[in-house]
Design a protein around this nucleic acid. Sequence first.
DNA 1: TATATTTCCTACCATTTTGGTAGGATTAAG
DNA 2: CTTAATCCTACCAAAATGGTAGGAAATATA
Lengths: 143, 143
Amino acid sequence: MLSKRAKYAIKTILFLQDNPDAVPVSAKHIANQENIPYKFLENILRDLKTHQLIKSSRGSDGGYSLAKPPSEISIAQIMRAMDGPIALIPCISERFYESCGECDNEETCRIRKLFAEVRSEMLPILERPITSMKDSISDPFSK
Amino acid sequence: MLSKRAKYAIKTILFLQDNPDAVPVSAKHIANQENIPYKFLENILRDLKTHQLIKSSRGSDGGYSLAKPPSEISIAQIMRAMDGPIALIPCISERFYESCGECDNEETCRIRKLFAEVRSEMLPILERPITSMKDSISDPFSK
DNA sequence: TATATTTCCTACCATTTTGGTAGGATTAAG
DNA sequence: CTTAATCCTACCAAAATGGTAGGAAATATA
């Protein structure tokens, strides 16, 4: 399950995407609009920043904005920054690889094979740019 | 990430599948063969039993065996029994549905839409019968 | 320069989850 | 009646989760 941190982070990034104003957006404003505990959000914003997903400016009128064009940001990036690996078992994770210590031969491990398949199905979806999440027009003829 | 409970449970079920002996298999034997802490395994076996995945017989010579043909058991069933929902957010889970409280309209929630897609890609794989995990012949011509 | 508003940073903390352990009661085969 | 198994209740330490508290540093504006 996605952690609350990750959920808040996603909402924050989408909020910043929806508000591409000239001026950066303050944490207080995001917290109010998105209903995220202020101090907790600060903490999350710091993480997003160290992972280069947002940038900030300090002082009065300071705030946050996306560090790159939204077309280069994906949900997968946010999830990895907040919760770590996306794969369900560590031994198939690309960036967080770890032996799971459960099998003695990764090549033949049946469990690993199955979860590798799962991961390779989820990844392309989670790695889509967040711009693709814009409220879908999907079917302009329906209703 | 998959919990250790779930991993052990999967290994246990696969072990039982691989040992369709007349006599049931003891927890001690499974623990030794699969390197699972004995007492922890007992606890897991109880859970697998209450979820109808295995059955047991007591007394000397007692033990465990699958409660149904392996063709009717899937990794998804084991995961749900151990860790609960498979979906990454609760508001798209079929059997563990819960509002995630994060959006005010599930129909239009962009996050929900994306994770619904993820779930519907993972599920068919995880719901395959464990019989399909038998060491794959895959490509008899390779090497 | 003073003040207000912001980010930044270091702690701390309660609750839940995870990964077990301990000890004994109960059942059944020999 | 002994032995080997399941079953059951309870406990426990460590880690993860979801926050809070308090203040320092930066910057715009009056």
